[in-house]
Amino acid sequence: MSEAPAGTGPGGAAPDVVKTQELFVSAAPHLAAGRSTRWIMFQVVAALMPLLIASTVFYGFRAILLTVFTVAGCLVAEAIANAIRGRSQASLGDGSAVVTGMILAFSLPPALNFYMAVIGGAVAISLAKAIFGGLGHNLFNPAMVGRAFLMVCFPAAMGVWSEPAIVFEGMALAAVDGVTMATPLQAAVDRMPGLAAMFVGQVGGSLGETSALAALLGGLYLVLRGVADWRPVVGTLAGAMIVAFIAHWAAPQTYEGPGFHLFAGAMMFGAFFIATDYVGAPITPAGRWIFGFGVGGLVMVIRLFGAYPEGFMFAILIMNAMTPLIERVTVPTPFGGHVVTN
């Protein structure tokens, strides 16, 4: 075979020889499953749609606006962080800031001021994600950090819980006094809504808390698509149920049973959408179980004995802090045992 003259480039084939063209050299493997980070993020966005629709039904157009404002806050903070760090703005399109904004929005009270929502989103991205090095480097769940910031700065506004605007026949709750009731979980102790009412979304709460059904629908989609790992989901629900069962068994007059806690508050939303967040959770199989059980158990401990009615935010943040330790003690054993040296 005669050598193609230098600079002939692709297609410059001499007659009677294998076409001389540029061949790429790279290390195996040469195939990829083709499910990108961006694909994963927009699957999560799609799975959040039932919750967005449900919360729009129950709280009106305001639910969508609140979501738009938190997402906007996240994207602006991401863009500024990229500019400061001298990086391309490509990360705006990877969907991670959108997911953070939506998760944050769904953990906020529906009546929250929009400017607070923007601040929450901006803090989530800037303080929890960008300063640690951006996507994949944050120690704590950005949405939960954003929510914690809002709780510290605007405790009054973060404690206002509206009742769903639409109440289905036969599921109506006992009369409630206005929109500034204490909290749904505390109030629930007094007037104990039916499980069906809680499941469909007849109890006031944050956007994502209201309808356990919508959260379950979106969450199951994520698990079946292989986007969310089922282990932290089952771990969270099981951990919470165990603590709830023990408390109820010890003092049935004081504490509601596990069934109530399964559908109350953010349990479904949190188990499927917050506990399954990749970055702050361990990557080892055993670690994911521990993480899930820890989140579920802490949620119940905070619900039952803490000062706050719902415990997901602190449960996630505490378990995020435990993640490096959990990974350290759950280094996987290879299929054939650890490598033998010497």
Partner: peptide, 10 residues
């Protein structure tokens, strides 16, 4: 791009 710790490799 950065590892998002999805644990698919594990």
């Amino acid at each position: 791009s950065p590892c998002i710790r999805c644990s698919r490799c594990v």
